[in-house]
């Protein structure tokens, strides 16, 4: 049995050691906001926060996750009130199909926690999630808008 701290709740799961955190979150904990896109840490659709750091959960085996590490998924990010990134995304109508956007939002919120005033170049370098619909322009604008709001 592995114990995990997900969105502030301790959950116990009975899974094989090599099971990626992504599939534990989706199939054993039942939170499907975190997406499967590639399984090889390329696309970022599976991004969650582990102790605040954007982490690609599809290649992180559950055996490498400690109970003390705080995992936050999209369901936990805006649970009390929408995160400024989510608000910016709504305001700019960023999402198209939406499938990659939860990962984008998790990556953006982690980026802003570490760098409250990112330049365009910072955002372009840090936001490496794949979107196939082509929302990149609005993703860039969304991160900047959220940054502005968070700085007050």
């Amino acid at each position: 049995m592995a114990k995990l701290n997900i969105n502030g709740r301790i959950v116990e799961v009975d899974v094989e050691d090599d099971t990626p955190l992504l599939w534990v979150i989706r199939e054993h904990v039942g939170l499907t906001g975190t997406k499967y896109g590639c399984g090889v840490a390329q696309c970022g659709a599976c991004t969650v926060h582990v102790d605040g750091v954007a982490t690609r959960s599809c290649v992180l085996p559950i055996s490498a996750v400690e109970e003390s590490e705080k995992i936050v998924t999209i369901e936990g990010l805006g649970a009390e009130k929408p995160h400024p990134v989510q608000q910016a995304w709504a305001e700019l109508d960023v999402a198209q199909c939406g499938y990659c956007q939860v990962g984008m939002i998790m990556a953006a919120s982690s980026l802003l926690a570490q760098n409250p005033n990112p330049s365009d170049a910072d955002i372009r370098a840090e936001m490496t999630n794949i979107c196939r619909c082509g929302t990149y322009g609005r993703v860039l604008a969304g991160v900047k808008l959220a940054a502005e709001r968070m700085r007050g």
Partner: peptide
């Protein structure tokens, strides 16, 4: 604005995979 956005932003939209 799109009328099908909000559940895409909080992870609650159930796609076929979900």
């Amino acid at each position: 604005k799109r009328i099908d956005t909000m559940d895409k932003l909080n992870g609650s939209l159930v796609y076929g995979m979900d």
